[in-house]
């Protein structure tokens, strides 16, 4: 009846295959498992931006996919579209990531293709991304390892590989947790 020690530990750890903003040498890595159509993740979006501003080069931010497809009908395609745009480089991935969270009420396939097109990725390429397995497989893999890591909903955050169970809406406490993690690793 106790939680096993492996619960709430990020598996697999962050690697080069992850989408990351910030240097791998940063003392703190914040990982978010998120869903582009989830309203709570939309609420967390500006908070993460604020944390990034305040932590500066002390923090690397990583995003992994956790779309709840049955609850959010556009979430899977939004995640696939972001991955497909991300195939053109990290800068484009993060631009797409931000556009999606800024437009959570407009995530139809046509909307997604339009955002991609504005970032220089053709609408045909996005349409194709929905049809092939490669991007969907990556999204699914993120989801699976999220569940195994103890993600129980979105957003779920991990600080240096350990699930953050505090309230992410409390920016002061969140920042405090990040700063103390930075000190431990300094």
């Amino acid at each position: 009846m106790t939680r096993e020690s492996a619960a709430g530990t990020l598996t697999p750890p962050v690697s080069d295959s992850d989408h990351a903003e910030g240097a791998s040498s940063a003392p703190v890595t914040l990982v978010e498992y998120g869903d582009y159509e989830c309203p709570s993740c939309g609420g967390a979006f500006p908070i993460v931006k604020e944390l990034q501003r305040k932590m500066g080069s002390d923090m690397r931010f990583v995003f992994r996919n956790f779309p709840l497809r049955e609850a959010h009908p556009h979430a899977l395609h939004a995640a696939i579209a972001a991955e497909a745009v991300g195939a053109h480089g990290a800068r484009k991935f993060w631009a797409m990531h931000d556009v999606l969270y800024e437009n959570q009420d407009a995530l139809t396939d046509a909307d997604l293709a339009g955002y991609a097109s504005a970032l220089g990725v053709s609408e045909a390429e996005i349409a194709n991304a929905f049809e092939v397995d490669a991007f969907a497989d990556r999204v699914r893999a993120d989801f699976r390892n999220g569940v195994r890591s103890g993600v129980n909903g979105t957003p779920t955050f991990f600080i240096n590989g350990v699930r953050y169970d505090g309230d992410w809406r409390d920016v002061t406490a969140f920042l405090g947790a990040l700063r103390s993690a930075a000190k431990v690793h300094a």
């Binding site: 939680r3 492996a6 619960a7 569940v147 890591s149 103890g150 993600v151 129980n152």
Partner: peptide
């Protein structure tokens, strides 16, 4: 296997899968 979670805590699925 069994697990009792406080009512306000979502136990997730990692324990079930293990």
């Amino acid at each position: 296997w069994n697990h009792l979670s406080p009512d306000g805590i979502n136990p997730g699925a990692d324990g079930i899968l293990r």
